[in-house]
Design a protein around this nucleic acid. Sequence first.
DNA 1: GCCGTTTTCGGCCCGACTGTTTTCAGTCG
Length: 569
Amino acid sequence: MNKKIVIKTLEKIALLLELQGENPFKVSAFRKAANALELDERSLNEIEDITALKGIGKGTATVIYELMETGQSTQLKELEEVVPKGLIPLLKLPGLGGKKLAKLYSELGVDSAESLRAACVAQQIRQLAGFGPKSEEKILKELDQLGERSERLPIWYLQQIVNEINRVLRSISVIQKFSVAGSFRRVSEMSKDIDFIVATEEPEQVKDQLLKQLTIKEVVAAGETKVSIVLDAEDVVNVDFRLVTMNEYATALHHFTGSKDHNVRMRQLAKEQGKKISEYGVEQPDGTIMTFDTEEDFFAHFGLPYIPPTVRESGKELERLKELGGLVTLEQIVSDLHMHTTWSDGAHTVKEMGQALFERGYTHGVITDHSQYLKVANGLTPERLQKQRLEIYDFNEANPDFRLFAGTEMDILPNATLDFDDDVLKELDFVIASIHSSFSQPQEKIMERLFTAIQNPYVHMIAHPTGRIIGQREGYNPDVPQLIQWAAEYGKILELNASPFRLDLCIEHLMMAMEYNVPIAINTDAHAIEQLDVMEIGAKYAQKAWLKKELVVNTWSLEQFETFIRKNK
DNA sequence: GCCGTTTTCGGCCCGACTGTTTTCAGTCG
């Protein structure tokens, strides 16, 4: 029995119980059980005693065993008979949860979006206890928007929104301090909303300014401490602002950064010490509330090292970080190995890019313009490549404290050959190979192309190995585990492309690569100076995969890097 | 439904906001 199916089933049961208006703790017990299975790395058969897992007891184990034996769940079947399917999508309507939907179903027979709408129009809903005219109005409005609003938005889209909001927040003088929080701060690939924590003594003024300055489609809530809006942008986004005092800032930031599981674990830990965590501080055993200047101080209070937002996920990070020591940080990065210039489709010259790298405190970098096949990007011929190299040499001569290497981002062609001959490649310091065409080839063909690159002695790295664009396209579907094995065997680097559009390889694959000791290069693939800044996103994403520093090529010194790139020559 | 070197019963993370109430339930994060 596939573990994924078991997890799905437990979650489905939770959903249906919720729609029956069941005890929320019982509902979450099924979700916790699903979560426990998900977090355990073993397959179902490898787990000897399933009830030994925290969160799985008699009830949920029964479901799991039945699924393993018969492939079905009696409990799920029974629930499906009682709970109308049409109610499930209605849970997505803001303001309607399990209890209310259960009531609407039992009292009015509401079992679909259509019957819910009809009940609103007939003004039947206002007659139920706990509902009123406003409920009908709100439900009708939400029904119109159901399906219109996208569930989760990609990090590259939200980044633009966050930049814009940051600009507005900076302009409000009564704001003492602010930060984005939530899953965006944790560098999630997709988020369903954006959270901000704002420290101020004048919450009323801040509220007024926010409502005035932002382009708002709808105000969801505007209270003393919370302003919640729907922003009118290309794709509408929910944005929440939490208004707190400077004293509360650190704990509020921690609380609203999450994740939920991380917070639950922290609160349990606090409870063990007789303390109580809320967004306003930590209540001590004697009842006094303690606040903190920084999140670092907050963690230290519980005897923990600073846990970066990026790894605040399951709650297991509390122990894991202590065992592992530190995580890769932006400060450890001394190079960027993938960028473009005006020679191909970049916006800045070799000199400008080199200077920008130096100013970021790096010790070295590689210029890697596109190769001739990519005509739309003005890819370089061998002749132009040679000319470009002279410009790079000039730069190095003028900048003795920095080293620029000559490289290429060479296309792997659809027919599984490379865009440059070995004669050309061997003249270069660093060779990236990547796929930019014929994404829809069968996997065997894609793998044949990648293998050609992997086994070429002059190729050092495969860039954006899957070709995905987050939330937009899947990429060319390579067999990544196979690619990782080849990279290990042939001593090649795989890229973590730091562009928020890509983040490629993904976390799961980065973890796999680490198991095989495959070196990973975090690269910006910058086409302009400003884009060199996405290194920060890349470094944070690497943290999420718990990448070891020694496997991250950009943390290597100039000498280490040179040793690596020369070894095939 | 799950859990337990203070507990096999009574908690389960905690608090804000809204719309319904006239002190609170439900939802949300």
